[in-house]
Design a protein around this nucleic acid. Structure first.
Lengths: 199, 199, 199, 199
DNA sequence: TATGAATGAGCCTTCATTCAT
DNA sequence: GATGAATGAAGGCTCATTCAT
C-alpha cells in the first residue's frame, strides 16, 4: 500500500474532529455538560472513545472548543448580517435589522444558547472557558459601541452596554419561558423605546 | 431515660436542616450543582453524609429546596422593598427604588444569582426545579405588570415584559463581566430611557 | 405516679416483642430477609427503630426468633392434627389426615414456607439459624418414623425419610409453580402409591 | 498501531466474561446473592469492579446469567444422560439411570443447587429470574412426562409431577441434612415404590 | 490513525446500629 | 421502657481516562 498522503491525513483529521465537535455540541446543548458522557459523544460521532483523546486533551477541552466554535459562529453571523447597512442606513434601520437577525438566531439555536448562558455563569470552575466566552462577547460589544459612535449617539458607551444587556435579557426570558414570552411584541416595544429618545 | 420531647426534636431537626441548606447553597452557588458532591456538602455542614437523607430525599430534592429558599427570599425582598412607594409615588421614583434594591441584591448575592440563572437554563433535566423557578419568577413579573397598569402606562403587558427582561439582562452582564460592567451608569441610562417615553 | 408493676412491665414487653415478631415475619416472608430493613419492620410494628434493640440483639437475631416461632408453630400444628388418629386408625387413614393438614397449611402460609425453604438453603451464613431449623425439622421427622414403626411398617427408617422428602418435594413444587401445580391430584397419587405397597 | 482484530477482541471478551461468571457462581452459591458484593466478585475474578459493567448491565443481570448457565447445564446433563436408554430399556432401568445421574450431580454441585432452590423461592423480587428458572424446569418436566407416556404408564401427568416433586424433595433433604441424610437408601426405596405399582 | 478492554476514583444512596434524652 | 437523630461503613454503579494493539 502506498503511504497515505499528507493531505489525506489532514482531511481525515479535520473530518473526524468536526464529527466529534458536532456530536458534542448537540449533546451538551440537549442535556448539559456534566450529564453528557464521553461514551455517548463518541457513539453519536460514530467514532471510538479513544479517538477523542487524539484530538482533544480531555472532556473540558472538548467543551471549550465546542463553545468557541458555536459562539464565534453566532457572533460572526450577527455582525455580518448588519455590516452592509451600517454606512448607508439610519440607526433605527440598522437596529431593526440586528434584532431581526437576533430573533431568528435565538429561535433556531435556543438549546445552544441556553448552554452558553449556563456556561457563562460558571466563573470559578473552568476559567479558561469563561475567559474565551468573554473575549468573543466583548468583540461583539465593541462593534455595537462603534456603530453607536458612528451614528453620533451621545453616551455611546453606556448606551451600548444597555443595548447589549437588553438584547440578552430578552433572549434570557425567551429561553426560560419559551413561547409564553411575547418575543415579537417585546422587541417592537424595545426598538421604539430605544430609538425615539435623543434621536 | 424519657424520650426527647417533641419540641426539642423539632428544634434539632430544624437546625440540622438549616445547616445543610446553607452549606449546599454555598457550594452549589460556588461550583455548580453537578460538581458539588454530597460528601462535600455534609463536610461543610459538619454532619455525616447519611444524615442528609433524613431531611432530603436525594441530591436533586436538596437542590430544589435550596433554590426555593433563596429564590423566594430574593423575590420577596424585591417586592417588599418597593411596596411602600407604590401608591404614593410617581412611576419614576418607584422604578428608581426598584433598581436600587435590585443592584444591592445583585451585588450581594452574585454567586447565588449565577446559580439561579444557570439552573433556569436547564429545561430538559430537572423539570421540577424549572417549573418552580418559573412560578416564583412569574409572581414577581405579575406584580411589575400590575404596577405599570396602576400608573396608567399604555401597553403595560409588553412593557412589563421588556422591563423585566432588561433588568435581568443587566444582571446577566454584570454577573459575567463583574466590575468591568458599568452597572450604575447603565442603570441610570436605563431609567432615563424607560421613564421619559410616554410619560 | 405509682411505679409500674412488675406484671405490667412484663405484659408490655411481651406485647411489643410480639408486634415486632409479627411485622418481621410478614415482611421477611413477603420480600426476603436482606431486602427488608429494620426501619420498615419498626414502622409496620408501630414502634421505634431503637426499641428493637431492647428485645433483639440485632437483625439476625430477630430473624432467628421469627423463624423459630413460625417453624415451631407449623411443626406443632401438623403433629397435633394427626395425634388423635395415631392409635386408632390404619396407616392409610393417618397419612390421609397428615396430607390434608399439610395441604391446608401449605396453601395458607405459602409465603412463609418459601422463606423457610430459602433460609434452610443458607448453610454457611447464619449457622445458628440453620441448626435451629434442622432441630425442629428432625423432631417432626422422628415422629413420622415413630408412627411408621408403630404400624409395623418394614424399613421404617428409610421409608420415613422418603415420606418426609416427598411431602417437602410436593410443597416445593407447589411453592414454585403455584396454582399451575395440580396439588390435589399429586397428593392423591402419592397416597395411593405410598400405601398400596407392602400394606 | 493497528487496532486489535475483531477476533482477538471476541476472545478477550469471552474470557473476561467467563472469569466473572465463574467467580460470581462460586460466591453466590457459597454465600447467597445479597451478601455477595460486586467488589468481592471482581476481586475473585481478578478484574476491576468497573469491568463488570462492560459485560453485565448490573448485579441482577449477572445473577440471571449465572443461574441460566448453571441451571441449563444441569438440565441438559440430566436429559442427555438418559436419552440413550429411553427407547430400548424398561422404565425401571431408565429411572434407575436417571436417579444415578441425579445423585451424582446433586453431590457434585450441592452449593449451586442450594442457591437455585433459594432463588426459586424468591417469587416477588426478581420475577425475571423466577420466570427463567421455571421455564428451564418445565422443559425437564415435560421430558419426564413424555417418557412416562411412552412407556404407557397410566396417569402419566400427575405421576410425572409426583416423580419430579419426589426427586426434588429428596434433593432438598440431602441439601439440608447433608451426609446425615441416607441418600442411597432413600433412592432405592423410592425406585422400588415407584416402579412396582401399576407395572 | 483508530480501537475498545480495562481501570479506579468517586459518585449517590442505604441501612444496621448507637446513644443522649 | 421508648425515641429518633446521628453515624459511618459498605453497597451498586458511572465515567473520564489510559494503553496495548
Amino acid at each position: 500500500m502506498a503511504p497515505r498522503k499528507e493531505e489525506d491525513n489532514k482531511k481525515i483529521r479535520k473530518e473526524s474532529k468536526e464529527k466529534i465537535l458536532v456530536a458534542a455540541l448537540e449533546l451538551f446543548a440537549m442535556n448539559g455538560y456534566h450529564p453528557t458522557s464521553i461514551s455517548r459523544i463518541a457513539e453519536r460521532a460514530g467514532i471510538s472513545k479513544g479517538l477523542m483523546y487524539n484530538y482533544f486533551s480531555g472532556k473540558e477541552d472538548l467543551l471549550k472548543e465546542v463553545v468557541k466554535h458555536s459562539f464565534e459562529e453566532s457572533a460572526n453571523l450577527l455582525l455580518q448580517a448588519v455590516e452592509p447597512y451600517i454606512e448607508k442606513e439610519r440607526l433605527q434601520t440598522i437596529l431593526r435589522k440586528v434584532m431581526e437577525t437576533f430573533v431568528v438566531m435565538l429561535k433556531e439555536n435556543a438549546e445552544i444558547w441556553k448552554m452558553s448562558v449556563a456556561l457563562s455563569m460558571q466563573t470559578s470552575n473552568m476559567p479558561g472557558i469563561h475567559r474565551m466566552m468573554t473575549q468573543i462577547f466583548e468583540k461583539v460589544y465593541f462593534r455595537i459601541e462603534n456603530i453607536l459612535q458612528l451614528k453620533e449617539r451621545p453616551g455611546a458607551y453606556s448606551e451600548a452596554r444597555l443595548l447589549a444587556a437588553t438584547m440578552d435579557g430578552i433572549a434570557l426570558h425567551y429561553l426560560v419561558l419559551g413561547e409564553h414570552f411575547p418575543l415579537d411584541e417585546v422587541v417592537e416595544n424595545f426598538l421604539t423605546k430605544f430609538c425615539e429618545t435623543g434621536d
